[in-house]
Each structure stands twice: as C-alpha cells, then as structure tokens.
Amino acid sequence: MKIVVCVKHVPDATADRTFTEEGSTDRESVDSLLSELDEYAVEQALRIAESGVDAEISYLTVGPDDAKDALRKALAMGGDSATHVSDEDIEGSDAFGTSLVLARAIERHGFDLVLCGMASTDGTMGVVPALLAERLGVPAVTHIEELTVEDGTVTGRREGDSATVRVQGSLPAVVSVTDRSGDARYPSFKGIMAAKKKPMETLDLADLGIDAGQVGRAGAWSAVDTATRRPPRSKGEIVTDDGTGGTGLAAFLTAKKFA
C-alpha cells in the first residue's frame, strides 16, 4: 500500500508570530518546525505499516527551502522517502494553490492512502484534506479519532460539532486525523541517523506541469487587505486571595451584570 503523508513546515506556535507586509506568514523572524498536528498523521501511517500491512510511506511538503526540516523530522520518526515541492512562484498561495500543488505531486507519486493532519497550526483552515479529496476524486474520511484500515476501506470516528459519526471510505482515499488519534512517537537517535540516508527528491512547478499563474499570490482567489496586531488586552485588576477572593469576584461579576 502506498501511503503519502502531507506534512507542513510552520512557524513555532509558541513564538511571537508575525505577518509580512504582503500579508503572508513571516517565516524569517521565528523558527519553524513540523506542524505538531501533522505528527499525528505520521504516527498513524507508521502504525498502519507496523500492523502488518505491506506499506510504503512517503512524506510530502510544499514550502520554502527549510521546509526540508519537516521532512527530516518525519523521516526520523520512520517511513521510507520524501518529496519537497519548492518554487518561488508558490509563495503567497491560497488553499486552492496549495492543494493543486499537493494533488499533482500525489498523483505523480501514486497513492492508496493520503494522510493529513486535521489543520495546520498557522493557517488553521482545516480544508486542504477535503480539497485534495475533491481534486483526486476519492472519498474524504476526515477529522478522524480512531482509524482502521482493512479490506480496502478506511473507517473511523469523527467527533463533529453536535454528533459523533462513524464514517467509511473505500481506498484510495484521503484521511485526516485529529490530535486524539494516538500520541505521536519521538524520533530515536537511530531514527535520526537513518533519516539522513533516506531518499528525498525536490520538485518545482515545471516538474508538476503547473503554470506559475495558477498558484502564488497572483493565482490566489482571495486577498489580504490588512493584517494588524491586536492591541494587547489592557491590564486587568489582579487581587491576591486574602480569604475574600470569592466575594470580591462576585462583586466584580455583579457590577458587570453577569451575576
């Protein structure tokens, strides 16, 4: 079974993230890493391979040069090979541009199962997996907590807003998994060393037969007008409980008409 895991390289969520003047994520000012939510997709791929299914695991990322780090991290966790799609013209892509590049690269590689995270930790849209399914013409088994792959199908539990749904799709399919699908492993020292020898190819738009105008800021179907830092919340009143902390809080809530 050919498994392609899509992993995104994102600015560290715990750092002070900013926008560039063009309204894109500033990738220069803070360190970037493999999106934590994509580690769960890597983990599921490895578990499928370990369950006895004859699987070949390959990682795919679309991003600038240092996005390779995300691929190395994933390879250090396990798996076989990686593809990095990088091209200056991709900068500033919207969800449609990104999903077009990913879909073409997935088709080029061949796939039975595409695994994604539930959302990136920077754009946080949570739509790329659905767009990949739409473009590839296969079932989208998304937002899954408990995943089983057997007899040519993927089945899982999806915790929606107001209901729990069990869903199933026949392979080939696109699956996205949540942070409740199972804890991701840490790369071992052996894994980190082994990752350095695993094959990694780099592709550009021409390799995928995509015109520059279909992606990037020029090909985007929406545009950012302004990106401004929210003024910090004004410092509130902090009191130390001297035995009347609860009564003081009640007075505050009453004054604000909440109680």
């Binding site: 910090p232 919340r233 509130g236 009143e237 902090i238 009191v239 130390t240 409980d241 035995g243 009347t244 902390g245 609860g246 009564t247 003081g248 809080l249 009640a250 007075a251 505050f252 809530l253 009453t254 109680a259």
Partner: peptide
C-alpha cells in the same frame, strides 16, 4: 493573568465556592 480583566491569585477550591455563596 496577562489576558484577565479580573484575576484572583488563589486556590480555586476556596475562591469558587465562596463566589457561588456570595452570588
């Protein structure tokens, strides 16, 4: 506390029951 409009530094098991009682 950086976000709080009002904060109580204290044990929630003391503060919250007293809050309910006072309301």
């Amino acid at each position: 506390f950086e976000l709080a409009d009002y904060g109580v530094v204290g044990d929630l098991f003391q503060v919250l029951p007293q809050l309910v009682e006072e309301i």
